[in-house]
Design a binder for these strands. Structure first.
Lengths: 217, 217
DNA sequence: CAGATGTTTAATTAGATAATTAAACTCTAT
DNA sequence: ATAGAGTTTAATTATCTAATTAAACATCTG
């Protein structure tokens, strides 16, 4: 798509959207600190001036990117955790959802971990615009429901006793960590793209059983 | 320790060591890109010129830090994996070793993941100076041993069938991820330092049983 | 057509920071 | 005492990059 001099407008938000997409790509690849506005402009096939025209500054652009990417991690889990379905099914769905999401954007975990590590002030943005306190209004009820469910299962002797927090962290660990640690797996196990994909597909099959089994009384 | 004008020499490697320690602190805190030589100098209670005197450039300094920190993650696991002890004991030791290590340097996982995400060219340094190929000379035999052990257990009906790779990744995920994702846990679960520590101590008790249980046939 | 909006080119400004250098001072070892 | 390593201060250079600006052009809408 070769552009000449002063090229056509796009009255819709097409250009802005293209810039945002390009910014996602570059920020995720390089991190907020390592990203260069120039590289984003090239990726969007647009010039630097236009970046500032749409998004005042690098800071704002990176915030927009963070909101759009990181902000999408929690809603999924909240919805499933709070659903009115058996624990076993929640496990299945969470594993499937996360492995699918991560497979599509395998650099996301590394990016988010990295950003939060270096810019802890962005932590609040993770949960959208939450009022105060520690637990989002959406997250709290989901956790409470899950906790009751787990307690009920334990009382009925169908499951080992475990807190909702440990349950969720175990699940997320098993699903997300392999992606975050992908470079390490490449080094340690020689996982190229192909081997890694197969490894993940294997996990998709095995993890639900692994987790269910771990929770047997 | 207030220093005046031209202060005493330290014929041993004390100053160099102090600089390296300071660099570790700052690089882990800020990441390679975000770190400033000035901040390192202050942290070491030394001036910038001396940084360059000992370590030619920022690049070299950051490499030294990466080698010293990241390079220490694998030896531990390799030693335990290759040891001549039952699987169950390996689980116990790995969990204990990792949770202890991580508790001491809780920012390490975030740092390593972050660095590798943005500087994949440093991946090889992870395994020290390995000849070629994908699997380190030290790692391969440990994995083979583990693989045979797992296969034997499965044949004897004492354990579910699982590959060495999946086994290890599961274990590392469960141990390391909570530290890497600490900022998220802070946001989602309201984990302040104290709650987080308790959460980890809980894991130290529960994880070995969780993992053993997951592997029951 | 006229004006607003989108877009480019090009040049400039301003700020941060890594790297370098020179000169001087302090101690230790010879 | 002197040489040399360690160390400081201070100033300078060289880059990089974000941000800004001005001027022109293109396209659509009214």
């Amino acid at each position: 798509m070769v552009k000449e001099k002063g090229t056509p407008p796009a009255r819709d938000g097409a250009t802005e959207q293209r810039i945002l997409e390009a910014a996602k790509t570059v920020f995720i690849r390089r991190g907020t600190g390592g990203a260069r506005m120039q590289e984003i402009a090239e990726e969007a096939d647009v010039n630097q001036a236009l970046l500032h025209y749409y998004f005042r500054s690098k800071e704002r652009l990176s915030e927009a990117v963070f909101r759009e990417t990181a902000g999408r991690m929690f809603p999924a889990i909240i919805q499933i955790l709070g659903a009115d379905i058996p624990i076993v099914e929640k496990i299945d769905r969470l594993v499937d959802t996360y492995l699918t999401t991560m497979s599509r954007t395998p650099f996301l975990p590394g990016y988010i971990i990295s950003e939060l590590h270096h810019h802890p002030e962005r932590i609040p943005q993770l949960l959208g615009n939450v009022a105060g306190g520690d637990l989002s209004d959406a997250l709290r009820p989901a956790f409470e429901k899950l906790g009751k469910q787990l307690a009920a299962e334990a009382r009925a002797g169908r499951m080992r006793r475990i807190s909702a927090a440990q349950f969720v962290v175990n699940l997320l660990s098993l699903c997300i960590f392999p992606f975050a640690a992908r470079p390490m797996l490449r080094a340690a196990l020689g996982f190229d793209d192909d081997k890694f994909t197969k490894f993940i597909e294997q996990r998709r099959k095995e993890l639900p059983r692994y987790i269910r089994s771990a929770l047997r009384p």
